[in-house]
Simulated assay, not measured.
Amino acid sequence: MADYFYILPSLRVAEEWYQWPSLLLGFFVSGVYLICRYAAKIFALLKVEMDLMRQFLAITFGGLTPSYYARQLFFGALFAIFFIYMKSHTLHGIDFATVAVFVVSTLLYPYSRFVYESVVGFIMGRNVFFVNALLMLFFKVITMFICWFLAIFIAPLGLLYLYWHHSRQLSN
Results as ranks from 00 to 15, higher is better:
I81N: 03
R12F: 02
Y109M: 04
L11F: 12
S105K: 14
L134R: 15
I7C: 02
I142A: 14
L24C: 07
M50H: 06
Q55F: 06
N127E: 14
F75V: 11
F122P: 11
K47V: 04
I142T: 04
L135N: 09
V131A: 03
R168A: 14
Y111D: 12
T143I: 08
Y33S: 11
A39W: 15
S112D: 08
F28G: 13
P66K: 06
W164I: 12
D3L: 09
R168Y: 08
L73R: 00
F149M: 13
R113Y: 09
N172D: 06
G158Q: 09
E15Y: 00
V128Y: 12
L57E: 01
V99C: 09
E15R: 03
V131E: 11
W148G: 03
F79R: 03
V101F: 06
T60S: 15
K87W: 01
A151C: 09
F27P: 04
H89Q: 14
F145H: 09
V99S: 05
E49K: 13
R54H: 10
I7P: 01
L162I: 14
D51C: 07
S105G: 08
I42K: 02
M53V: 14
S167V: 04
V104F: 11
I7Q: 07
G31Q: 06
Y85M: 01
R71Y: 02
F149W: 14
A155H: 04
T143R: 13
L108H: 04
Q169K: 10
V128I: 15
A58V: 03
V32D: 02
I42F: 15
S167C: 03
Y68M: 12
S88F: 04
R126N: 12
L108I: 00
V120K: 12
T98V: 01
K41C: 00
H92K: 08
L34R: 13
L91T: 12
P66F: 07
G26D: 10
T143Y: 08
I42A: 15
D3R: 10
M86H: 05
A151T: 10
A2H: 04
L25T: 04
D51P: 00
P156I: 11
W148F: 15
T143V: 02
K41F: 12
W17T: 08
P21E: 02
L34K: 11
F27E: 01
Y163F: 15
